[in-house]
Design a protein around this nucleic acid. Structure first.
Lengths: 226, 226
DNA sequence: CGCACTCTTGAGGGAGCTCAACATTTGTGG
DNA sequence: CCACAAATGTTGAGCTCCCTCAAGAGTGCG
């Protein structure tokens, strides 16, 4: 439980607690017990899986208003502050595992994981980066400009690419007039429709509904005998 | 709710129900309400995300004793029978969202998603297929031989590869003396250690602990001021 | 026996990784 | 505030891996 202040760690404060983390600080680590969840008041947080070979997989970014952290700890992810961040910490009642915030956090984690799977599965670099930018724009409620508080390395480890490919792809979008960069951390959306076309028709829909997709039959689908 | 027998669909039977599905049948579809979860009595089940562009992503395989299906339905995945399968269906109480089976299914879904992310993130075809075989061997509790009830297409859509690459990779393993095939659906593990070496040191550990990994610091990790 | 489906294998090409160098930004100490 | 160092980001060249296209082999079913 490194990363938590002393009084929080020893559990002296039972109710929701406000915590501040500085850029790069660990909020919780892989293997920690999952006895609390968090809400982002300000700043950005990433959840990561670290692998022995040094390979890092980011499973989600969390912005203002997002919740995270129920399923982790008892599970196998860590959380770190991408920027200076203010969080509220909420204890998880041991007895009653179905609290509202916990469920919200669980849903959010599953959403994040599914989104991650979507981004990683059989899509090329252009599709991944375009989708990532659109998701970030949507999440940050910034219709025209997208802050990118995370590093290229973070983006790469989230999308399953190298920083080189991420950088090249973004530069390509700038050259095509789809976006503009004001420094590496601020992106202005020039042609959202063009980006959507690259991300794929489906990604556009997925971003609109944030995870709700059209059902589609694969086989005949005859009734099952019981 | 196609795929469920009539009496189940209209909710006449409140308690756990035994259902049989035939190979290829749909258990539930994307968009169905998530009002029940399932346990596999026998057979194999896959959960899928279908995308508009025709691309299919399998997020998990479920074998005897596995549970699945809480988070789907209200979410965006479908479940289908890979082989003839017998399942038990369990209603989810609307009021009390924290039942034991539901939590098991939620944990299982998250495990599956994380495993999927692991397989998809920055690993080459050899690593993915080797890891997949090892996971299947572990899950099916078959130390020497691995039944592969799913098609190459299922494996490909799970690993984010083409059927060609899956087939070529498996053939390569046979040629290297790592495995033997007795027909496409039965694989004998000749050199598990060799496979582990290919999957990566870490994958070996991950399979042993099934998801529990060593924590690892990324930055200084100084205490947070509250 | 023929059809349909799955699986396997080969040849060629392109997307993205690796290696390398340079530019830019950020942080630190004098 | 400036000088320097360190970290981060950008860009290029070459090469590898896997996808695409194509054809053939094995299997189950009517």
């Amino acid at each position: 439980m490194q990363g938590l202040s002393a009084e929080v760690r020893r559990g002296a404060i039972p109710q929701d607690t406000i915590l501040k983390f500085r850029k790069g600080e660990i909020i919780f680590s892989q293997g920690d017990p999952g006895d609390c969840w968090f809400e982002v008041v300000s700043g950005t947080v990433r959840t990561c899986h670290f692998h022995i070979d040094g390979h890092r997989q980011l499973t989600g970014f969390f912005y203002q208003g997002d919740v995270f952290g129920v399923e982790y700890g008892s599970r196998d992810a860590a959380a770190e502050a991408v920027t200076n961040a203010i969080l509220t910490r909420h204890p998880v009642p041991n007895i009653e595992p179905g609290s509202l915030g916990q469920n919200r956090a669980l849903e959010r984690a599953l959403d994040s994981a599914n989104q991650c799977i979507f981004l990683l599965g059989r899509r090329n670099a252009n599709e991944r980066v375009a989708a990532f930018l659109l998701i970030a724009a949507k999440r940050l409620l910034a219709p025209g400009s997208i802050p990118l508080p995370m590093t290229r390395s973070d983006i790469a480890d989230h999308l399953g690419l190298t920083i080189h490919t991420v950088s090249r792809t973004i530069s390509g979008f700038v050259r095509q007039g789809l976006i503009e960069l004001e420094g590496p951390q601020l992106c202005r959306l020039v042609d959202p429709e063009g980006l959507r076309a690259i991300a794929g028709e489906e990604m556009g829909a997925a971003i609109d509904n944030m995870g709700v997709m059209r059902p589609r039959r694969s086989f005949g689908g005859q009734e099952a005998g019981a």
